[in-house]
Design a protein around this nucleic acid. Structure first.
Length: 483
RNA sequence: GGAAGGGUGGCCGAGUGGUUUAAGGCACCGGUCUUGAAAACCGGCAGGGGGCUCUGCUCCCUCGUGAGUUCGAAUCUCACCCCUUCCGCCA
């Protein structure tokens, strides 16, 4: 969420930032909304101030027995009480219009983010390791997994549909081992606090990290249950407004009378669906970034507590609404996957350095697994909604013969903090300011398993267990087919 | 799912219709004292927003949220949200 005061004071810089993302200018429209808002606030507050002053004068007039003046003042207050409610409603509407508009606008890129439109415009930052030579043609992870009878898409489809998988034996354990290993590295060596967060969260939490309102279609949510009382309340609210209720076709009853039933209009149905969806709903987290970042929502933290660093290994759930046809084979893009997440809460001064640090924490995991990867700085056109700057780590998948994203580390500035109302009290001047937030995968466990499988595959289709994982695998050195 | 009790500044907490302009404490900041620190004492200290002649002055809103009653609401009424405890069910 942007600061309207910044936009008001730096409209050109704001629009330039949007332009770098390939977006049309917004400052003019926002400033118009803001001016409308401030105008009505001024009117409302003038009326309120007069009402308050007159009320005090009433007391004084009564004290001095000036009944005539008191009566006049009371008439004035009565008149103000007629007009103030409408102004209050107008003020609310104007503020909401501005907030709704602001909520739809993505964060601005930092100066050093490369300009570009597409992933191909991302800039390589550095590499670790090198492509390996194989004496055979490396297979893709799903070929390996299915041949081992430890990765089963068909059964998963019976249970849950496409984009799910059942893992067994060594591959199931490899998933667990990777998560444990990563958490241990981050907690015991990188200073992150391990958290086991809720996987189901409220609307406002999803808004805080900016999954809502814009990306609702990408999320899974639980369905609220509607009871009879709720339904009655819903229809009471409609009040036979013809936008929502209309007369249906007449029905001849058994008794020869004609009844004209009411039914929902299209808009009424939409309203009903909205009402039902919002009732007792929870969202399934698409990433632990959501609960971890929101840990500090609606609070004022002492600067001495910063930076805060949180990590969690959780399942993540994504509807993959816009990904039809993409990565349909294998486990690259699933509705459910495991990820170790890193989140930092910092002061504005710390966030840039913390971003570099977070990247190196994520990289360390891949280094110890001895996986070849490259780091790219995302271009302005490829960055996520909330990010100011993002590094992606792309791991080499020899079977796919591609580099694929395995981690994404973003600094968000105060963009999310504003949405969450997360602030800190500065040590120096005791002022309250918004914190900065950062998030990164440290790293995606599902994709790390794929990378291990494809990188460590052997000619016979078995998979060597990387040294650092063997202790997490009960000493297992090789994942091979077993009866 | 049932019942009861709650939601007040960064934190704790008083306040059940009218100097609440929200007591008091803790924390924090400044000062006095001290070789220094602690203690003690003195002073300051909620958040958000608007306006202006903008280092300042001033106004508005906020006691979970929204509506209502009233000349007047933290306080009363209604609805909703959230939390806690107990009971039931349950891994």
């Amino acid at each position: 969420m942007h600061d309207i005061r910044f936009i008001r004071e730096h409209p050109d810089a704001f629009d330039r930032g949007l332009a770098r993302r390939g977006l049309a200018p917004e400052s003019k429209r926002l400033i118009v909304l803001d001016e409308a808002r401030r105008k009505i606030i001024l009117e409302l507050e003038t009326a309120q101030a007069r009402r308050n002053a007159a009320s005090k004068e009433i007391g004084e007039a009564k004290k001095t027995k000036n009944e005539k003046k008191a009566a006049e003042l009371m008439a004035e207050v009565a008149a103000l009480k007629e007009t103030i409610p409408a102004m209050e409603a107008a003020e609310k509407a104007a503020s909401k219009a501005l907030d709704d508009a602001l909520a739809q606008i993505p964060n601005l890129p930092l100066d050093d983010v490369p300009d570009g439109k597409e992933p191909s415009d991302n800039v390589e930052h550095h590499r670790f390791g090198a492509k390996r030579d194989y004496a055979f043609t490396p297979k893709q992870h799903f070929e390996l997994g299915e041949a081992l009878s430890q990765m089963d898409f068909e059964t998963a489809a019976k249970l849950s549909g496409a984009r799910f998988v059942v893992l067994k034996k060594g591959l199931a354990r490899l998933e667990r081992a990777l998560g444990q290993f990563m958490l241990d590295v981050h907690t015991s060596e990188h200073g992150y606090t391990e958290v086991a967060p809720p996987l189901l969260v409220r609307d406002e939490v999803m808004f805080g990290t900016a999954q809502l309102p814009k990306f609702a279609d990408d999320q899974f949510a639980t369905q609220g249950r509607i009871e009879e009382d709720d339904l009655q309340k819903f229809f009471d609210q409609l009040k036979y407004d013809e936008r929502y209720l209309e007369a249906g076709p007449a029905i001849e009853t058994r008794h020869g009378t004609t009844e004209i039933p009411y039914r929902l209009t299209r808009e009424g149905l939409e309203l009903f669906n909205f009402f039902r969806a919002a009732k007792n709903r929870h969202w399934l987290i698409p990433t632990a970034e959501v609960p971890l970042t929101n840990l500090v929502r609606e609070s004022i933290i002492d600067e001495a507590q910063l930076p805060m660093r949180f990590t969690a290994c959780t399942p993540c759930f994504r509807a993959e609404a816009g990904a039809a046809g993409k990565d349909t084979r294998g486990m690259i893009r699933q509705h459910q996957f495991t990820k170790v997440e890193l989140v930092s809460i910092t002061t504005p001064e710390q966030s840039r350095d913390e971003h570099e640090r977070m990247l190196s924490c994520a990289e360390e995991v891949l280094r110890r697994l001895d996986l070849h990867y490259r780091v790219v700085t995302l271009c302005t056109g490829d960055m996520g909604f909330a990010a100011q700057k993002t590094y992606d780590i792309e791991v080499r998948l020899p079977g796919q013969n591609m580099y694929r994203e395995i981690s994404s580390c973003s600094v968000c500035g105060e963009f999310q903090a504003r949405r969450m109302n997360a602030r800190y009290r500065a040590k120096q001047d005791r002022n309250i300011r918004h914190v900065h937030t950062l998030n990164g995968s440290g790293v995606a466990v599902g994709r790390a398993r794929i990378a291990v499988m494809e990188t460590y595959q052997e000619a016979d289709g078995s998979i060597a267990v990387p040294d650092v994982l063997q202790s997490y695998m009960g000493g297992m050195k090789k994942i091979a087919k077993s009866e």
